[in-house]
Write a protein that binds this DNA or RNA. Structure first.
Lengths: 131, 131
DNA sequence: GTGATATGATATCAAAAAAGTATCATTATT
DNA sequence: AATAATGATACTTTTTTGATATCATATCAC
């Protein structure tokens, strides 16, 4: 199982770089220090800005910096940006698999399991992944 | 995030059906009670037999039954049949992303997280998902 | 033993998701 | 106004997942 997507992982590393670069960097700077496809990296940073993790500034001497203190950012927060989940409790088969789908209890159980995993992510600060 | 694959989910339901069918059923019987593509279902059952969850018997009056008591089967056991994981501790990027990959601590942390999720699966009996 | 019936093994195809690319628009600095 | 950065977004490629098709093999009834 692949716990997190490449985008999330890249984001984690890009943020780490920004932190170590005095809390600010532009795409070129990050790109020259990481072996990530540049346009892909760019789009990831844009998404982080859109999600209000980073604050972007255009033009000369522009780039990205943290909008809020990075210490409070969780893995859950980051993950949800790049990995869209099913609404909780929803049957992934649209109730088509079982004959007696009305009494199906499986979707509820699996949904709860998913919630638990998500809860784990809530308790993980990205700064702790960096250390 | 999609916790388990369709194959695993289908397997879970097929096993549930077999249990409720007196511990034995063939593909036709299961198929006629579930809205799953028949050849796909068949391959899933084959994989379960290969993994020694089920025992298969060919020919007339053949089919599938549990090889061992179903009460002890965990979600982890089922999941690993259909979802191959990375070897623990392995960097998903083959150490290509970071300049200082030797000091990279991220892969270890994420790998540990993956282990934790897997541990959760170990503690889930499929019979409890049925109830 | 032979025919019908079931699974075994396995190659192939299709759909969906993830990963990566390209491009034009917009804004800030000089 | 020119340059240099990000914004928005549409597109393409690759990988994974989901599904199909087919021939081989074993079992049972007769």
């Amino acid at each position: 199982m692949r716990v997190i997507k490449k985008e999330t992982d890249y984001a984690l590393r890009a943020l780490f770089f920004i932190k170590n670069n005095g809390g600010h960097a532009d795409v070129s700077k990050i790109y020259s220090n990481m072996d990530i496809p540049r346009p892909f990296l760019r789009r990831i940073l844009q998404q982080l800005a859109h999600a209000k993790i980073l604050l972007s500034k255009k033009g000369k001497h522009g780039g990205f910096k943290f909008l809020r203190p990075f210490e409070k950012i969780t893995l859950a927060r980051l993950n949800e940006i790049f990995d869209k989940r099913l609404p909780p409790g929803e049957c992934p088969f649209k109730n088509k698999v079982c004959i007696n789908y009305k009494t199906c209890v499986l979707k509820g159980k699996l949904s709860k399991l998913e919630e638990e995993i998500y809860k784990m992510f809530e308790n993980i600060l990205i700064k702790d992944l960096w250390m």
